[in-house]
């Protein structure tokens, strides 16, 4: 049982956890948690790829870019969630359909 295999399997478990949470949740902010969890696993895969191919620097460049993008996405999602909360009073997605006024 190689250490890389263990890393791959644990990363896949984390991605699965993130995806399930993303799909099943009804709360706006928990979508961000699910997305962030999956991105952590993906950063680990990218570093693993760099380590295996001897090209750590390129993997680091990818990881830094992914981190910046995901921070922007998380901030925008939080902003949207807060703005919806101010207008409608709660963060449940199920209440968003067919809102009038």
């Amino acid at each position: 049982m190689n250490v890389t295999t263990v890393m791959l399997v644990s990363g896949l478990i984390l991605i699965l956890a993130g995806c399930i949470e993303l799909i099943r949740t009804h709360h706006m902010l928990k979508i961000i948690i699910g997305l962030e969890l999956a991105i952590k696993a993906i950063s680990m895969f990218l570093t693993l790829g760099g380590w295996l191919n001897g090209n750590i620097a390129l993997a680091e460049a990818f990881v830094v870019t992914v981190i910046v993008l995901e921070v922007v996405v998380a901030t925008v999602l939080s902003g949207i969630a807060i703005s919806i909360y101010h207008k409608h009073g709660n963060m449940d997605i199920r209440n968003l359909r067919n809102l009038k006024g």
Binding site: L22, I23, G34, A38, I39, I42, F45, N53, F62
Partner: peptide, 20 residues
């Protein structure tokens, strides 16, 4: 968001084999 996760996972798997 789900699409992002799928695409990035696919890219990282390709990176593991190809190195670039």
């Amino acid at each position: 968001a789900l699409a992002t996760i799928f695409i990035l996972t696919g890219l990282s798997f390709l990176f593991i084999k190809a190195g670039s």
